[in-house]
């Protein structure tokens, strides 16, 4: 098995999907000859040609809407949104059209498309390049939301998303694109959408998170073990919709304490929904209120203040301490 970075795993996944199914194509800004600004689509134009590696005019509403037109016609577009913040112009198509077509045509048409979205902060980028778009869409019925945290899952979830007959927002942790390598099988395999993974087993507290902050949580868990002898269980949600509630609730019932971590702004976030679900399904098991480690209710700051905003292992550790000593 080859050791790949997360971006290499995505590139590999795209090529595997395109070799397997002639209806799969990629489109987006600079994804063709240039191979994408992060090089996620490198080599695809050369192997598959301009009809399947499409450079589009610079207009997200237009190309996301056009991709929907392609999808209902029988193609499977995998659309790259260059940066998370640039998804905003496509919002209308996502919420008013793409998410609703299967339902409003009572199944006559559906939209098998994937939006690959380099997501979240941590790379000291310009403004509008570091957004937590899951909070824009998680309460919008009809869109699946997937968020891998490592190269193996990135490829397997991407292939599952492409195979899925419904629209999927595929949030890529851009901060992890090249930060480490992991073993990734060659060829085709999928990781089922809607199944969480236990990234670290533990008995004292459950940390629920996804994407980039799985690693923040793991770091905090090691600190908690070293400093206090507490074993934190880290649940990598992998998919926000569909959500693996069973794994979440089983873990919380086991540890009786929970911390949720995401860098989205605090109010109305998906992290808050996790707290509500624990309230619905496991309240009587809790020894302490669920703690939230989140971003703040301010726009993602410019790069000099980015570290103020992003959750780090210290904040997660503090939350663990608060629920353990409640």
């Amino acid at each position: 098995m080859a050791k790949l970075t997360l971006i290499q795993a995505i590139n590999d996944g795209l090529k595997v999907a395109m070799r397997r199914d002639p209806n799969v194509l990629i489109m987006g800004e600079d994804v063709g000859i240039n191979g994408g600004v992060f090089r996620a689509t490198e080599g695809i134009h050369a192997e598959f040609g301009a009809d399947r590696a499409i450079d589009v005019p610079l207009a997200e509403s237009g190309f996301v809407g056009a991709a929907m037109g392609m999808a209902i016609y029988g193609l499977k577009p995998v659309v790259e949104i260059q940066f998370d913040g640039f998804l905003a112009p496509a919002h209308e198509h996502l919420v008013n059209q793409i998410a609703r077509i299967r339902n409003r045509s009572r199944g006559r048409w559906h939209v098998p498309m994937v939006l690959r979205i380099p997501s979240w902060g941590g790379i000291k980028a310009l403004e509008h390049h570091s957004e937590s778009i899951e909070n824009w869409y998680v309460n919008n019925p009809g869109l699946k939301i997937v968020a891998p945290s490592n190269p193996y899952d990135a490829k397997g979830l991407l292939l599952a998303a492409i195979e899925d007959p419904d629209p999927v927002l595929f949030m890529e942790p851009k901060r992890l694109y090249r930060s480490f390598r992991a073993e990734v099988p060659e060829g085709y395999y999928t990781v089922e959408l809607g199944k969480a993974a236990i990234a670290r087993e533990g008995t004292d507290v459950t940390i629920l998170t996804y994407g980039v902050h799985v690693h923040t949580a793991l770091e905090a868990a090691e600190k908690a073990a070293a400093e206090h002898g507490w074993q934190a269980e880290v649940v990598d949600l992998r998919s926000l919709n569909p959500l693996d509630l069973d794994t979440i609730i089983a873990s919380v019932k086991k540890t009786r304490r929970a911390v949720v971590v995401s860098e989205a702004p605090r109010t109305g976030g998906f992290h808050s929904e996790l707290v509500a679900l624990i309230n619905d399904h496991a309240l009587e098991y809790l020894e302490a209120p669920v703690a939230r480690v989140t971003g703040f209710d301010v726009p993602m700051p410019y790069l000099l203040s980015e570290d103020f905003f992003l959750p780090d292992a210290g904040r997660v550790l503090e939350a663990i301490e608060s629920v353990k000593t409640y």
Partner: peptide, 28 residues
């Protein structure tokens, strides 16, 4: 296609479907 109430959105869908036909070498 189902009626579109949001204004002009359906125009890009029409382009996308015709674009797909062209890629599939169909004269739709």
């Amino acid at each position: 296609f189902p009626i579109s109430i949001p204004i002009a959105t359906q125009l890009v869908h029409a382009v996308g479907a015709a674009w797909a036909a062209k890629i599939k070498k169909e004269d739709t």
